[in-house]
């Protein structure tokens, strides 16, 4: 029983990582109705920037806003430069460009920072939260930050005009233009935000798994699993989905002998396929009711 509880708690903690990544996936999906397969590499790139700033001796509280801000600008610029020209191209072109970005970022990171693993200190300090606590300081901080990001996003979309405009642009681009919204600017904004959230996810994850150019590949897969499970249209769903994926992964690793501790990626594959087949809109995804 103790083991079970411990696995749930630690699954919850890893789930925080996936939840954050899933949020970033949902952001992009809302903006462009695509899944950005290069998102993990972009988040890793952001994390490297943070690592570099730390290595140059900047304090953590300065590094975080700086890395997030740079990532926002980076995501925005990538959309403007790379995707704007092919806005109306077929899906395959988009997928190919995502893959191209994947290769570019991955190789650039290897070139600049090489492929050796780098430890990244936690912003929340080392050790357990309190004596005998199941959660470490870092895990607690990770979950708290994920929740904070979720609440901020919710408030942004619910209460600000830009948030409303972004939702409208995603829901119906043509009509959005007819009320004067600059749809393609909103798309770029979505990219920027997704990239900023990806940076948050990367900085939270790096202290747990060590930083290297391929850090995010499997985590992105779990992020996708979480986002699909929760519903690609729902930020709250993505977070819940991310936590569920974390817990399922941990329990499966402990109790299904085949899976073992190290080989958990097939679980993500299994989850994705099952959700897409059984309930493609996910747990909280919206089913649009349209009467004409």
């Amino acid at each position: 029983m103790d083991l079970f509880l411990q696995q749930i708690v630690s699954g919850f903690a890893t789930g925080g990582i996936y939840a954050c990544m899933a949020l970033s996936v949902v952001m992009i999906y809302q903006a462009i109705h695509h899944l950005n397969f290069a998102q993990g590499e972009m988040a890793t790139f952001s994390t490297f920037i943070a690592w570099q700033l730390l290595a140059w001796g900047l304090p953590y509280f300065a590094v975080i806003p700086l890395a997030i801000g740079l990532s926002f600008i980076g995501g925005f610029v990538v959309e403007r430069v790379v995707f704007k020209p092919i806005e109306n191209a077929p899906v395959l072109s988009h997928i190919v460009i995502f893959i191209a970005l994947f290769a570019i970022f991955n190789s650039a990171m290897g070139f600049i920072w090489d492929f050796s693993i780098k430890p990244v200190p936690s912003a929340f300090g080392e050790g357990p939260l309190y004596e005998g606590s199941l959660l470490s300081k870092h895990q607690t901080g990770m979950i708290a930050v994920t929740m904070l990001v979720l609440v901020l996003l919710w408030a942004f979309f619910r209460f600000t005009r830009v948030g409303l405009a972004m939702r409208a642009a995603a829901a119906n681009p043509q009509s959005a233009r007819l009320v004067g919204i600059r749809v393609s600017f909103m798309t770029a904004l979505g990219w920027g935000m997704a990239s900023a959230i990806g940076a948050v996810a990367g900085i939270l994850i790096a202290p747990v798994v060590f930083l290297e150019p391929n850090m995010m590949l499997s985590i992105l897969l779990y992020g996708f699993a979480g986002a699909v499970l929760g519903g690609l249209t729902s930020p709250l769903g993505a977070v819940i989905g991310g936590f569920i994926v974390g817990i399922v992964e941990n329990l499966a690793g402990t109790y299904i002998p085949v899976v073992g501790g190290e080989l958990k990626l097939p679980i993500a594959l299994f989850l994705i396929v099952v959700v897409l087949v059984v309930k493609p809109e996910g747990l909280l995804g919206r089913r649009v009711v349209q009467r004409v």
């Binding site: 590949l217 996708f224 080989l263 594959l269």
Partner: peptide, 23 residues
Amino acid sequence: GIYLALATFALAIAMPQLLKLSP
């Protein structure tokens, strides 16, 4: 489209681990 890309993306990433499974 994109969902199929996702499912196959997951397959590709999971494949090396599937090949290592103990059974």
